[in-house]
């Protein structure tokens, strides 16, 4: 299944391009529109959490963005993957190509947005150089990123295949994402979560990922290996489920669209 992907990477590439370009084709500032959303969110959430709730988190905007940006990569990819079958129904019904390309294209396209949104983080770090910690621990970044991609890709495969078969997957996914939005430490630090609750919440791989980015960039510390380990377990499990579900339904995509 994954070998086909490499053989057909030109198709993958063209679908990613198409998806990415289509989004900005008729917007004045082109791809920089993808900065508008996180920018507005940073402003609003900083007002709410710093000026009203007074969480007192140092460098709150950067702290927030280091959670929000990876989390947006996750939700946007997964949402796009869930819709990818329906969005490309004509293509699926009329052209034989490896169906696994669809969720991969969704994730890759949003990975680009993720990198663009990181420019915002970069900008804030340039403005507040004191927030940034240069250390050898930066070498852990690729690991955290890889884990994040593994998790996102696994979920993307599950929902992409399931949503072709069962159309309510997308609605259930929305509910789950809403729950995860608050159960991921975006506005708070995972360290203030009570132990009992933390044992429960840590199984969400985004916890390890978000906390990992923050530890590395804001504290110059290594990521929490307990959280990353748990995230790796969940993600691997999800990868197996995703591969199974996708194998089961990939030959039926055209039947159900």
């Amino acid at each position: 299944m994954f070998a086909e992907l490499i053989k057909k990477r030109e198709v993958l590439d063209v679908l990613v391009q198409k998806d990415f370009k289509a989004r900005y084709k008729d917007k004045a500032l082109g791809r920089f529109w993808s900065l508008a959303d996180p920018l507005v969110m940073v402003i609003v959430f900083t007002i709410v959490f710093e000026y009203i709730f007074k969480t007192g988190q140092p460098y709150f905007p950067i702290f927030l963005l280091l959670g929000l940006t990876p989390y947006r990569f996750f939700t946007n990819s997964v949402n796009a993957a869930a819709g990818s079958g329906l969005d490309n129904a004509q293509l699926v019904k009329k052209v034989a190509f490896p169906r696994i390309i669809l969720p991969f294209a969704s994730v890759l396209s949003h990975m680009r947005h993720f990198f663009i949104e990181l420019l915002l983080v970069l900008g804030l770090f340039l403005y507040f150089p004191a927030a940034f910690h240069l250390s050898i621990n930066l070498l852990w970044l690729p690991l955290v990123f890889a884990l994040q991609c593994l998790f996102i890709q696994s979920v993307a495969m599950i929902v992409a295949a399931l949503n072709v078969r069962y159309r309510d997957t997308q609605y259930m996914l929305n509910s789950v994402l809403l729950i995860l939005y608050w159960m991921t430490p975006l506005f708070y630090s995972f360290s203030i979560v009570p132990r009992k609750l933390a044992l429960f919440l840590q199984w969400n791989p985004m916890v390890g990922v978000v906390e990992g980015y923050r530890a590395i960039l804001l504290k110059g510390a290594p990521p929490s290996f307990q959280l990353l380990g748990v995230a790796a377990i969940t993600s691997t499990l999800l990868l197996f489920i995703g591969t199974y579900v996708f194998k089961k339904y990939e030959k039926l995509f055209a039947d159900y669209l």
């Binding site: 198709v11 063209v14 289509a22 084709k25 019904k93 009329k94």
Partner: peptide, 25 residues
């Protein structure tokens, strides 16, 4: 397959861009 002409065409892209997309697909 000439099952349906122009599978994968995207309305916002130009004819030339669509030839590329469609051909690769």
């Amino acid at each position: 397959a000439l099952l349906e002409l122009g599978a994968g065409f995207h309305p916002h892209f130009t004819g030339r861009e669509n030839i590329l997309i469609n051909g690769i697909v």
